[in-house]
Design a protein around this nucleic acid. Structure first.
Length: 900
RNA sequence: GGGAGGUUAGCUCAGUGGUAGAGCACCUGCCUUACACGCAGGGUGUCGUGGGUUCAAGCCCCUCACCUCCCACCA
């Protein structure tokens, strides 16, 4: 018999099993020789959302990785050929910033190194930190196939990126052009709409007077314009009013003078102008405001760039302003306006302003030459795939968000003025002609010259991630991997990257492979702290998965995260709950220790004759069958919370609190019960296997100790079959009543002990008699059951009973119970505290209230006529039981409260 | 301005039209020979508000309130 360590210590085995699993290649996954053959395993595939290559796993990763691993392990145990493909993302901006920051410590900038040297340095950085992600996933117990690890900048994926780019270009979906883009002066690059975060800002609304140019004889006139950004006035090329605005109709077609600058600009009519806002007159600055850009386009207005990429005023803003930063320029301009008497009003104003999500600076709308991808038809395909069920979102409530975003999608700015990333496969000759090609050689051929310079921009990181589900399997080559594993079954990720990543993968996948890259997407909530507050470095409430694993063990962390994943909810992470789940591990450990200490000579039975077993054994097996089915159902629906709850309850409450206690007398020498050891082992084996996907380390450690486990799988629980959800073990209705009677009698005994301040050492006789005339038969039946050897032995063992006696209890025995027309009274063999009359009175009040409720219901003709017969019958029986209970309570209370 | 989600025990959350549940916390008693990371016992909850449907509503429908988040070019 294996001697088990008494102390439960996850650290003592987690690392060992992780190394063992990796060394034995349990999670390495290949394409079968003949995938189409009958009986060949079906593939199951999940692509990891690739974390930043030099990053650190945060709680969100831990949550998503736990769920991905849970599903992968579950499917693997079900016999599916299960691939969880790991990898990392080059994370253009994030990684480049890290290296730049590192460089800054040496007092250098990336420009001091030059592009080539800088990139060498980033690669070195990547090599240094790359192993971190794998190490952390290993700690968590992730069953990835590391032989297939991919990186978004590795050779195969780069090939896929160039291929996709060139094809989209040739199809006319990608084009290069000058356009007003979101410019981040913090990152020194253009960013996409998605990377702009709107924040409410307390600002000022400045009202500025513009002189109207007048012909001779006309009276001087000025109009007042409201703006939040006075400095852009220097780039104004028009004023606009609403075409139906009576106040200004006479001005349309005239010209105004830009204050300070002195330029003459037209006044146009445009229906986008809101008459009610401000003064109803808008200044139009096409090169520094998106709305103005559109207005300018409608009216053929030119633009003037007065702010540059560094956020400084350009020469075009005038000699007084050129070179100043925006804020200084604003101050100067306001001074000049005041001096000229043209600043007529200032008021506080709260509005939404775009900020660069990553660097936090205010976004500057700026004219710039960039690459854009027109995704409109791809978006339509992604909409259709969702609409017809080829792509399912879980929870489904995300559907509307999906539809709204895709239906209103705009061109995607895919170029970035960074160095770290996929350099755009476009080359220019000396004359500035552009050649898009898969390789430099192809470009040379197209251009007819070797004098080519490659476009210095790189692609948005999300462009390569969008190809992830198929680029990782060898696309654009038609590999066997791609044919077999693609499309994947499930994607698990956070809702925060639904547009950034999921929608783009769907669009690219549908476009290049004709199939949705995943059948279902499970979107998780956000991991928050115990108080429900979003974790952030500045708040100092960030929990590190690695610390938690060290403190509680990976299994407790996994169980906690999985059990909190309820649809549409965020995940509040409370260390106390984590500790509670560690205690669950301790419980499993000790239950196993107990079973192993009692089953000398037995092994896990290969088959079991359910019909021959005694009630407790039959009951726990029926519960096992139920929980196997419910866990299966829950996992199919991504209800990890329900799966965990059912497993927890089954193991702790059903198996430990009830079955193991009931098994104890059955293990005594001479017990008439059969196969108790076998059932203990069988249920423990199945329970560990059911728990394995969520608690892989603990279950492997314990399962390996079970005698006979090697007949289920010679090596590991990871590859042992998941317990069948269709187990045929069912109790008959009569047995169901028996087990609940047994449990109620035990509970009655425990209640009496607690109420009357007795210890478990006090023994009791149980008197049984009919509670009302005609119930004699029930008493006989009850006696037969309770006095059978198995049951009586059980009652003696776990309820502290001596005898079960038919007949009235001795006089003075006060604490009676009524169950199904039968009165049961416990008489203890030691002196007991008196019955708490106040408590009984409360109980009686409650019963009285209940009686009048049920009676009223039964007296209502609409109820008896319209409710189903079973419900009415239930109410009648309920009433009868309540009335009996009332008799019982009155019987106990009255002799005491009465005169004698 | 649209849209989504939430509102149930002290806390965090499940809940399938038929008398409201779990875990944690808390209180009481127990070192009952697997486990004190444990065992047993302990809950009178305006199920956010107001209406409606129904014999019957935490659940279905409508209204409103509050909280979270997403989307959105009124300068």
């Amino acid at each position: 018999m294996t001697e088990m360590e008494k102390r439960f210590d996850p650290a003592s085995y987690e690392g060992r099993w992780q190394r063992e699993w990796a060394a034995r290649d349990y999670f390495v996954c290949g394409v079968p020789e003949n995938p189409a053959a009958a009986g060949a395993p079906q593939p199951f595939c999940i692509m990891i959302p690739p974390p930043n290559v030099t990053g650190k796993l945060h709680m969100g990763h831990a949550l998503q990785s736990t769920l991905q691993d849970l599903l992968t392990r579950w499917r693997r145990m079900q016999g599916r050929n299960s691939l969880w493909l790991p990898g990392t993302d080059h994370a253009g901006i994030a990684t480049q910033l890290m290296v730049e920051r590192d460089l800054a410590k040496e007092g250098k900038s990336k420009h001091d190194l030059g592009r080539e040297k800088f990139l060498e340095r980033v690669w070195a950085w990547k090599e240094q930190y790359h192993g971190n992600i794998r190490r952390q996933l290993d700690l968590l117990g992730a069953s990835c196939d590391w032989s297939r690890e991919r990186f978004t900048l590795d050779e195969g994926l780069s090939l896929a990126v160039r291929e996709a780019f060139v094809r989209l270009f040739e199809e006319g979906r990608i084009r290069r052009g000058e356009y007003l883009v979101n410019w981040s002066t913090g990152l020194d690059t253009a960013i996409s709409d998605l990377e702009v975060e709107m924040r409410e800002v307390r600002d000022k609304l400045w009202k500025i007077a513009y002189e109207i140019e007048i012909a001779d004889g006309e009276t001087a006139e000025r109009v007042v314009v409201a703006t939040t950004r006075p400095e852009t006035l220097l780039g104004d090329t028009a004023l606009a009013v609403h075409p139906e605005d009576e106040r200004y109709r006479h001005l349309v077609g005239k010209r105004a003078v830009v204050p300070v600058a002195g330029r003459s600009i037209p006044i146009v009519a445009d229906s986008s102008v809101e008459r009610e806002f401000g003064t109803g007159v808008v200044k139009v600055t096409p090169f520094h405001d998106l709305a103005d850009f559109e207005t300018g386009r409608r009216h053929g207005l030119p633009g003037i760039q007065v702010i540059d990429r560094k956020g400084r005023m350009t020469a075009a803003s005038g000699a007084d302003f050129a070179g100043l930063d925006v804020d200084t320029a604003r101050g100067l301009l306001l001074e000049k306006l005041t001096a000229a008497g043209q600043l007529v009003h200032v008021e506080d104003y709260v509005h939404n302003v775009g900020f660069c999500q990553r660097s936090g600076v205010r976004v500057q709308p700026l004219m710039s030459t960039q690459w854009f991808c027109d995704v409109s038809t791809m978006a339509a395909d992604a909409l259709a795939a969702h609409a017809d069920g080829r792509l399912e979102l879980v929870p489904a409530s995300w559907g509307k968000t999906w539809e709204h975003w895709l239906a209103n999608i705009r061109p995607w700015c895919i170029s970035r003025q960074l160095w770290w990333g996929h350099q755009i496969p476009a080359w220019y000759d000396g004359a500035g002609n552009c050649f898009v090609a898969r390789t430099r050689e192809d470009a040379v051929e197209k251009a007819g010259t070797h004098e080519l310079t490659q476009d210095s921009d790189v692609l948005d990181t999300w462009f390569s991630s969008a190809l992830w589900p198929f680029s990782t399997l060898g696309w654009p080559h038609e590999t066997r991997d791609l044919a077999y594993f693609y499309p994947t079954q499930v994607l698990i990720t956070g809702f925060d990257i639904l547009f950034f990543w999921v929608a783009r993968m769907a669009m690219m996948g549908l476009h290049f492979t004709g199939q949705s890259p995943f059948a279902r997407v499970h979107l998780t909530g956000l991991v928050r702290d115990a108080d429900g507050v979003k974790m952030s470095k500045t708040k100092g409430n960030v929990l590190d998965p690695e610390d938690l694993i060290q403190e509680h063990g990976a299994d407790a962390v996994r169980f906690t995260l999985a059990s909190l994943d309820s649809p549409g909810r965020d995940i509040p992470l409370d260390p106390q709950v984590m500790a509670g789940n560690r205690a669950f591990g301790n419980k499993i450990w000790n239950a196993t220790r107990f079973v192993l200490s009692k089953v000398e000579g037995a092994t896990i039975p290969a088959a079991i004759d359910f019909e021959r077993l005694a009630l407790p054994e039959r009951w726990i097996l029926s519960r096992l069958a139920e929980v196997s089915a419910s866990v299966d159902r829950a996992l199919e629906e991504f209800r990890f919370d329900l799966a965990c709850r059912d497993l927890y309850h089954f193991f702790w409450s059903d198996f430990c609190d009830w079955y193991i206690e009931m098994a104890k007398p059955g293990l005594e020498a001479g017990s008439e019960r059969l196969l108790v050891k076998g059932v203990l082992l069988l249920v423990l084996d199945r329970a560990l296997r059911l728990l394995h996907p969520v608690m892989p380390f603990l279950t492997e450690e314990l399962w390996q100790k079970l005698p006979g486990h090697e007949l289920i799988h010679p090596q590991t629980i990871c590859l042992a079959a998941y317990p069948d959800a269709a187990l045929a073990w069912r109790l008959s209705a009569a047995e169901g009543l028996e087990i609940s009677l047994l449990r109620e009698v035990v509970t009655i005994a425990r209640n009496d002990r607690a109420d009357r301040k007795l210890t478990h050492r006090a023994k009791a006789d149980l008197y049984i008699r009919a509670a009302k005339p005609g119930a004699q038969e029930a008493v006989v039946e009850r006696m037969g059951f309770l006095q059978s050897e198995t049951v009586l032995t059980l009652l003696r063992s776990i309820a502290g009973m001596k005898q079960v006696i038919s007949g009235p209890a001795p006089a003075g025995a006060l604490h009676k119970h009524i169950l199904e027309n039968v009165e049961m009274t416990l008489v203890f063999d030691v002196e007991a505290a008196p019955v708490d009359l106040a408590k009984l009175q409360l109980e009686l009040d409650k019963v009285e209230a209940n009686i009048s409720n049920v009676r009223a219901k039964l007296e209502s003709e609409s109820f008896t006529a319209k409710a189903p017969a079973a419900v009415v019958e239930g109410a009648r029986r309920n009433l009868a039981a309540l009335e009996l209970d009332r008799e019982r309570l009155r019987g106990v209370l009255q002799p005491v409260s009465g005169p004698g």
